[in-house]
Design a protein around this nucleic acid. Structure first.
Lengths: 341, 341
DNA sequence: AGGAGTTTTGAGAGCGCTCCCAAAATATCG
DNA sequence: CGATATTTTGGGAGCGCTCTCAAAACTCCT
């Protein structure tokens, strides 16, 4: 608790500031007995280096920023984000970094936050959750400032930016192909918003699966949701008149909402209508009917994103890195594959 | 982008470092035209002060820490926490503070995080989400270190610590009284864990309401959940044999789980069994049946917690502050009050 | 115009650390 | 055993800012 300085420790250990600094930073060229003596003093006094001083002198803050742009205001409605945050926080703990969280709520927030984030001195690197048109500004700012940056999710303009993503097209493709194979004829989709790469990619996968089998694409079977439960609910209501016998939702939470709407309309799942979600969050197994869904490794995704960022910090921004993580289709009850058809 | 320093700005504006510093910090005693000149240079150059240097010199980091101890590992299962975080982040943005997030996952995390948090230099103040036995250690550490500290939720030992909470006893009391007034006879509760103050307080409110009406307390009608959906589900299954006609759940998410169990057991809500939750998160209105619940101002709660912390930082740690926020019973369908009985 | 009071300005000393460099101590070898 | 190579150590400058204090520049009186 004492406000000890390096100096104090040095004096007590009978060595110089430099030596203590070496010990603290685990650098070589310190005689073993001296190192031990210093370590003892540090333990006894409960000394901890002053972060600000260290940052100033070394130009390294050991702090990473996580920016959640306004576009992820559904941070609070989609459990995906807490899980992602968990992975990120875990990695930060692991690598002894502090995590600074920037939740952009309003335009004014942006003005306050963006300069802070883009400026050296506070952050060693930044993670941005993106994939939305509106996120281009902060990404551009960060790229220009040469701040080490990893985007979680494919950004719209991805030249010169390192990002980590899953293969959304492929994952969606697999999911829909599965529905086709089971034998569904009228497969609808609740897509994500058109201004998000995730939404676009998953829809593309859906279309790809249909076309591959020579199916005609019925626009009435494609509706857009906003990655919220309520959004899924209303999307489903719009989808209902087109009489789908199966629905691929671009997120679990929308699938949940959609199933609610289906049930309200008197449909039984999966007898009357099948559902496949995306994410495989715990919530997928909590509804009355177990949701078939695309599992993506959310927590590891966050963890990996941090590791990628550290790589950029250590080894330079170029060449730009790309990481694509694997997904897996988890078959449960809601798609009807588990019962005889 | 440039790595400008105060010095550079001063030179360009033809003044001294001190004057620029005054301008930046909005201090008086700068001639208006000089101030303007400096401001212009700052704008033109895009200068931003180096955070580390400022922190070192002023002993103020303009950073607040949010510690989510291991006990809130359900950070990821209960939407309460994201909402709380939102309020906290909003306030930080508002007051120009940076928010550092410490998610304690494991014992090893504690060892890394606790010293970092308790040490001056990184944080100006700390917010701890608590109310769990296991949280006493970090609270004690922080109190000892004289770090400005606000606990969100009543801690077990609250002497010498400033905290913010809602009146859980009273809120639960109201909710259960409401059920009694409607006419339910066998009111059960799914309480929170006994090692949490929230769990204890809400249970106390439940008991208080029963006793007030001279009802006998049937231990079979009291089961414990863990603030997860699954926990609520299993708790309800244990409760079912006792044949309750109404259930007060200590959180919305547990109420959701409990209702799922009730439905599976063939009970209709609220005809056969009524439910009241606690929190009034958006999720309360998303199940097939609208949940009657105790509304607590989660987002404002977080916001207020930050304001309280800033008060401690500005005006000293003593006297210890206590803030209790109001709750409100929101009557919807699940309690059966909206239909004739 | 001169002096007291007030406001504005700048010099300089830190804040607590890192890191370079040279000096001191130790090891190595012919 | 002295000369050279190597390792260990400490001094000092500097990271970019704040803040005190005294000097300089203005006010406002009489």
């Amino acid at each position: 608790m004492s406000d000890l300085t390096l100096e104090d420790v040095a004096r007590q250990a009978g060595v110089s500031r430099s030596t203590v600094s070496r010990v603290i930073n685990g650098r070589p060229n310190v005689r073993e007995d001296v190192r031990q003596r210093v370590l003892d003093v540090i333990r006894d006094t409960g000394y901890h280096p002053n972060v600000a001083a260290r940052t100033l002198a070394s130009q390294r803050s050991w702090t990473l920023g996580l920016v959640l742009p306004h576009s992820v205001s559904f941070f609070f409605t989609d459990p995906y984000y807490p899980h992602l945050t968990k992975g990120i926080a875990q990695a930060c703990n692991q690598y002894n970094y502090t995590l600074a969280l920037f939740l952009v709520g309003t335009k004014e927030d942006e003005e306050k936050i963006f300069p802070r984030v883009a400026r050296k001195g506070l952050l060693d690197g930044v993670l941005v959750q993106a994939g939305h048109h509106g996120d281009q500004q902060i990404i551009g700012l960060l790229v220009d400032s040469k701040m080490p940056l990893v985007v979680a999710g494919r950004p719209f303009r991805s030249d010169n930016v390192s990002y980590i993503d899953i293969d959304n097209v492929n994952a969606a493709h697999n999911a829909v192909r599965h529905l086709i194979q089971i034998g569904y004829r009228r497969i609808g989709t609740i897509a994500g918003p058109a201004h998000s790469t995730v939404g676009l990619d998953r829809k593309e996968g859906y279309l790809k699966a249909l076309k591959e089998r020579g199916r005609e694409v019925d626009e009435a079977l494609i509706v857009e949701g906003d990655f919220t439960e309520t959004g899924g609910y209303y999307a489903m209501q719009r989808l209902l008149p087109a009489k789908p016998d199966a629905v691929f939702a671009a997120s679990d939470i929308m699938a949940i909402g959609a199933m609610r709407a289906a049930r309200e309309a008197g449909l039984r799942i999966p007898t009357d209508i099948a559902f496949v979600g995306f994410d495989d969050l715990p919530i997928a197994t909590l509804s009355d009917i177990q949701l078939t869904t695309v599992r993506q490794p959310v927590v590891q995704f966050g963890y990996k994103a941090v590791e990628l960022l550290l790589d950029l910090i250590e080894n330079g921004l170029h060449p730009v890195r790309r990481v694509i993580m694997d997904t897996e289709l988890i078959i449960r009850d809601s798609c009807g594959a588990t019962r005889v058809r």
